[in-house]
Structures are given as C-alpha cells and as structure tokens.
Nucleic acid binder design. Structure first.
Lengths: 294, 294
DNA sequence: ATTTTCTTGTAAATTATTTACAATGGATGA
DNA sequence: TCATCCATTGTAAATAATTTACAAGAAAAT
C-alpha cells in the first residue's frame, strides 16, 4: 500500500534529496522512475507524464504514484517543485568540491553552496531579534564590533558600513583594545560580537565586561553557544561549517549579509537626510579616483 | 493580430521583466492578466488556467494568448518559466528596499538581492582567467592583497583565508605600506588588487609598481576600469552597485566569494597534505575556546 | 501449492489546455 | 451619425493530459 511512504510535506529545496533518500525503500517500478528522473533532471521538467512513463518504462499511474511518494500532490506539482529546486541550486546534492572537479565545476559549487547557505540563514533568522538589534543600534551613541580571525574581517567591514550611515562605529580584533573599549562603554551603547565558533573565550570575557557596564551586546554566532547565550540580543546563525579542505567558509558571508540587514534597518530609521550624506561621501571619494570614462 | 508581439525566445530569468516591459503595448485584457500575475507571482505558479482566467477576469484563451505574447509556448511552459525565475530570485522586480518595508520584508530583500548578485557574477565569470589566477598564486612565493575602504575588509579576509592554506599572505590598506610592499615584490610573486570602483588612483599606482617589478597582478574589479585593465590577470566583476540608501553593497560579497573560489582552487593544487595542516590549525584554535558542550 | 497481499498496468473518466470560430465593440470614414 | 471594418475577446468544441478505478499478475507467506 502506498502509505508506507510518508506523505510529509517538504520544501522544494529538498526534493532531489528526498528522492535519493527514499530510493532504497521504493518499489521496483517507482525506482525506475526515480532513477530516470535523477539522471535527467533538467529534461524532466519539460516532459509530459506520457513521455516520462515511456522513457522510464513504466505506466503513467506509476509515475503519479512516484510523485505522491516523494510528497507532491501529483505530477504537475512535482514538476513545479523540481523546476524550482533546479533553478535555485543547479548542482544541489553535489555541492562538496572534489578533487576531480574542473575550474568550472568548483566555481559553480562554491557559488551555489554560498547561495544555499544564505537562503538557509535567511529562513532561520529571528526577525524579532533583528528588529530589537536595529532599535538598539539606533538608540546607541557608540557601536563597536568585536571579532577574531575571519570574524575580524567581518567586524572591519561592518565598521566601514556603519560609518557610512553616520553611526559612530569602531572595530577591534585585539583583545586588549576590546577590553579597553569594553570598560568605556556606557548604558545604551551597543557592542556587536561576531563569532563563527561561538566559543571564543576572550570574546566571552569582553561580552561580560560590556554587559557589566550596562551596554547592550548583540551577538552574531551559532545558537546554543556561550557567545549567543551571553548576549543581550542574540542573532543566531547556524550555517554548518565544515572544516573540510574543499569547503568554503560560507558562514562569514552569512554574517556579512546579516550586518547588511542591520545596516538597512538603521538606514530606514535614520530616513531621508542620510541620502544626502551618502551622496556627499560619494563625491568625497570621487577625488581619490580616476575620472569616469563615459 | 498576435504577431505584433515578437516571439523572441528568452531566458527564464528575464520573464517578469519581459512582462513589465511589454505591459504598455498589451491589449486591455492581456494587461489584466499581466497585472494580476505580477501582483500574485507566487500564487500563480500553482494556479490552473481556469482559476487564473477567473481571477484576472478574462477568458482562458486570453491567458494563453498572454503567455505566447511573453514568449512562452503555452500556459504550462509559462508557469514553469515563472516558477524557475521565482526560485532563483524570489523577490525579483521588487528587490530595492522601500521605506514601507517591514523587518521581514527588507531582510528577505537583502538576502535575495545578494543571492541575485552572486548568481549573476557566477554566470559572468571568466573561468580561464580564474584558472590562470589560481596557477599564478600557486607558483608565487608571496601573495599580497591590496584594497581600500570596503575592499580593505575583503583583503583582510582574503589574507586570513590564504594563511590557512599555508600561503604566505599579507593584506595592506595603507598606501604607504602598499608601496613598500610593491617595491619588494619579485618576479612570479602575486598581488591581488581588489576594488569596487576600479578607479582608485592610489591602487593603480601600486599596480604599476608591482608590474614594474615583474610580479603578477590579479585584479578583482569591474570590467573596463583602469584597475582591471592594468592587471596581468583581470577577474572582472560587474555587480551593479547602486549608491542608493537602501541598497546593500553586494559587490564586496561577490568579491569574497571569488576569493573563496581562488582559495578552493589553490587548495586543490596543494592537495592532501593540506588537510592535515587544517586539522592542526583547528586544534590550535581549540585552545582559545570554551570546551564544546556536547 | 494455495491463498493473500502487494505491485503494476489497462482502460475509462475526469480535468485541463488549446483551437476554431463567432460575437462584440471600438475606430474610421462616408 | 451611421455603416463598415478590423482588432479584440469570449464561447464552445476538440484535443490533450492527468488521474482514478479496477483488474491482472507477481511475490510472499502459510
């Protein structure tokens, strides 16, 4: 009976994985369908059920049963879901770079896995926390960014970004400076602590310092980590981080984008007069550049 | 007659734009369809032609005529194309953040526009240049990164990244240091010059210095800019950069990802012994962290 | 070996899409 | 202002696609 295949609803992004996963527990003819589909992903989305049935050497109802088995409403629904997944991450399921990959392949994989990470992070963000973070930043006199290692670069980028928005921003990657900064924070001020591991001892110390001064700590770190838990406003980001050789570190990019979101939020708060300021900045920078040639 | 609408074939990514573009020259009822579709993008992909016709208050054949007018084969084909486009950039056509947006809205828009940029950059990369860049880096004794402003953060991130790969890397955002570094480069060494504008005078000077020393300059900059043109190996990236108030600066993220690609390429060249090194690094960093709690 | 249950396909019914054609309505010129 | 023509739209029929119901055939179990 069909009910051995659970009818759980799923996001389109998980379709091909769902297919591969349930391959072993499929019936023979359904498996024929699955195998044909996996081998001809891009073609399938433009096929009619009759063609697909013929190609997979099964009957049409079997195709429909297959679609239901992987959680879709019917064949049309399946095609739609497949089309969406293919559009969103073309090399899904084989994102890890391998030795054999050509330049073209690993380039695409790096981009695709980054995109993948971003979309996952986007969907798992706590918007309420985000809002609180924006409000806190807007209310603060000073905003400072702490981070080590790869997160130091993120912190400097953030500083640059907020500077543009007329926010008094600083970034420290030196524990001593962080400490000095921390002790000089006043109530209402904001420190944004960035960590990929969420477990950096020095950073946690600095956070405690800042909190003892009555300032607010926004953490950008994985959930259930000391850094996230120590923060006043935790922005948790769980981009899984392989330390594997061929895996790019996407989480720092997710961190940057989250900071972009904060910056946009602050820009919205500040409203129109900022536009003018940004144009001024632009003009100022123009002096450092070669004249535009068009 | 229908033939006033040209039957040009197009990439799915341009569908909604094609719709908006041809809106003015559409017939009244076709426009009703177009407007309804643009206002209900996500719903439409799961609608049947009858529902859509009813919602748009037109007949079914009109819907089909509309689909043909925008370059599709029929209604099914249209839905498929739309689904693919939506999957690849979910809030296409309304990515610019507006004053009225809620936290949820602008968060999604920031992520989506970043994703959008990445996918565009991915598709426009010159893989041959990329390959040459990887080879140059692998052959170099020293690799240094130059960048100002937002690109300085990118440069520091890159330094960190390559350091992990046992590449002797440095990053300079100070023109004086850049100059000193430039004059000490030897033939075969590599400088990676990062610029969002591609027109920073100081950077161009440094590039000329480096070239005169016989070293290789890889540029990460927009095409047709002095920086790109001065480089030995230009990696051109044309993420359009609005200086608008509510637009995130996605190009620096594209730059980071391109550097990720370079890093993966170098890692592949270096091969297996690197794995061990990365694990060592990991262990070393562990000492700076709170013990894992699971 | 026989019965039961699961799997698959055939054929029919349903449902969706497309085509052909007719009616409407607006524009143009008398 | 009315008649005529052509562009536009809808109606209804035809075609095509998908889904359901059921029966035949395998496989498994007793």
């Amino acid at each position: 009976m069909d009910e051995l295949h659970k009818d759980y609803s799923m996001k389109p992004a998980e379709l091909t994985r769902a297919i591969s996963d349930s391959l072993p527990e499929m019936r023979k003819s359904e498996r024929k369908v699955a195998e044909f589909i996996l081998a001809n992903l891009t073609e399938v989305i433009r096929m009619r059920i009759v063609d697909l049935a013929e190609s997979a050497e099964v009957s049409e109802p079997t195709v429909v049963r297959f679609c239901r088995a992987v959680g879709c409403d019917g064949f049309q629904d399946f095609k739609l879901a497949l089309a969406q997944q293919l559009a969103s991450s073309p090399s899904y399921g084989q994102i890890a770079v391998t030795d054999a990959d050509s330049v073209a392949e690993y380039t695409f994989k790096v981009f695709d896995s980054t995109v993948d990470t971003l979309l996952k992070v986007r969907d798992s963000l706590d918007l309420d926390m985000l809002n609180r973070a924006v409000n806190a930043i807007c209310a603060a006199n000073r905003v400072e960014f702490y981070g080590f290692g790869a997160s130091a670069a993120v912190a400097f980028d953030a500083q640059h970004k907020f500077f543009r928005l007329q926010v008094s921003a600083a970034a420290y990657a030196d524990p001593h400076l962080q400490n000095m900064s921390a002790t000089s924070m006043a109530p209402g001020d904001v420190v944004i602590a960035i960590s990929q591991s969420g477990r950096t001892t020095t950073l946690i110390n600095a956070i405690e310092q800042v909190k003892s001064r009555g300032a607010i700590v926004i953490a950008i770190a994985p959930s259930d980590t000391p850094v996230a838990m120590a923060a006043t406003i935790p922005l948790t980001i769980d981009a899984k981080e392989d330390i594997q050789i061929y895996t790019p570190l996407s989480s720092r990019i997710a961190h940057l984008v989250v900071i972009d979101v904060l910056a946009i939020g602050v820009a919205k708060h500040k409203g129109g007069q900022l536009q003018e300021h940004l144009l001024d900045l632009q003009h100022g920078l123009e002096a450092l550049r070669v004249p535009q040639n068009n």
